[in-house]
Write a protein that binds this DNA or RNA. Structure first.
Lengths: 147, 147
DNA sequence: ACAAAAAACCGACCGTCAATCGGTTTATTG
DNA sequence: CAATAAACCGATTGACGGTCGGTTTTTTGT
C-alpha cells in the first residue's frame, strides 16, 4: 500500500536557516520562566519550585528540561552528580526568535514584514507608550554599544 | 480508573481576553494566502489554484477552509449553490494577533512586553531600516486617522 | 569495595491538532 | 425527478506536549 506517500512539513524546521524554532508548551514555558528567575538549577530544584504545586512528578519536570535542552533553549552541565540546566536564551531573545519566526511564517511578498508588523504596533501606540518606547530603545542601544 | 484526572490547559485560550488565537498549519496558511491574493472564492477555486499542484484532494481543501472558518479566519456565504469564503482578517491583522499572543505568552512580569520586543527590534535596526520604519509608521498613522 | 540512594534514561500512553480522504447525505438544477 | 455537485461526517495518520513507571547508570556513605 505504498501508493500515496503523505508528507507534511514539520512546523519545526525553518528551511531558510535550518534552525529550529519551536512552539513551546505551557509547562515548557513555566520551566524556562523558572530558570530565568532562579538561575542555573538542577531537576530537583525546578521540581521543588514548580512541580510540587502542580502535582506533577519529578520525571515530568525532568523530561521537560530534557526537551528544552534538545530544543536548545537550555544548556546543561554535570555538576558533581546531577545536571545543572541554565538558560541558553534570555526571555528577550526568545520573544525575538518566536516573533520573527511567526512573522516570517505569515509574511507575504513584502520583504519588510517584520518591520511592517511593528509599524502597525507603533502606529497604535499612544503618546505615553511612545515615550516609554523611546526610552526603551535608547537603553537597548546603549546596551548594544557597550558590547 | 478515575484516580488521576489529567488536565492540560489548552494553548488556545487566552485567559485574559478569552479570545482564541490559534496556531495555523502550513496548508491553512497557504489557503489563507490564496484567498488574500484572489479574493472571495469557493472550494473549487481554491482547490484549482493550490490543491492541484500539491496533489491533495478537493476534500482536503474543503476541510481546511472549514477549519479556517471555525477559527474565524474566514467567513462564508452561500452563493447560489456553494459557499464562498472570504478573509475575515487581513494579513496584517493576522500577524498582529499572532505576534501579540506570542509575546503575551512568553511575556514576563513586565507590562510592556510588546513594547519591549519592539524596542529590541528597533535597537538592532540600521539607519536604512529605521528610515523605512518611520515611513511605515507615518503611513499607518495616516491610515488610522483617516478612519 | 559494596550496598543504598540518587539521577538519568528509556519507552509507553494519552489528548490534541493539522492534514488527509472516502463515503453518505443533502441540496441544485436541467 | 434524476443526475450532478457540494456539504457533511467520521476515520486515520503523524507530530508533539505532557505525564509517568520502571530500568540502568552513577554517586556516595560506611
Amino acid at each position: 500500500m505504498v501508493d500515496t506517500v503523505r508528507f507534511r512539513t514539520s512546523p519545526w524546521v525553518n528551511t531558510l536557516t535550518n534552525h529550529r524554532v519551536s512552539t513551546l508548551g505551557d509547562l515548557e514555558i513555566a520551566v524556562l520562566e523558572d530558570i530565568w528567575r532562579f538561575g542555573p538549577s538542577d531537576t530537583k530544584a525546578v521540581y521543588a519550585r514548580i512541580g510540587q504545586s502542580r502535582s506533577i512528578s519529578l520525571n515530568t519536570v525532568q523530561s521537560t528540561l530534557e526537551r528544552l535542552f534538545r530544543k536548545a533553549m537550555l544548556q546543561r552541565e554535570k555538576i558533581s552528580h546531577a545536571y545543572e540546566y541554565s538558560a541558553r536564551v534570555s526571555r528577550r531573545e526568545l520573544i525575538q526568535k518566536l516573533v520573527e519566526s511567526t512573522v516570517r511564517r505569515v509574511a507575504g511578498p513584502q520583504p519588510d514584514a517584520l518591520l511592517s508588523a511593528f509599524a502597525d504596533l507603533a502606529a497604535r501606540a499612544d503618546d505615553d507608550q511612545i515615550k516609554r518606547l523611546e526610552e526603551l530603545i535608547a537603553r537597548r542601544r546603549a546596551e548594544l554599544d557597550q558590547t
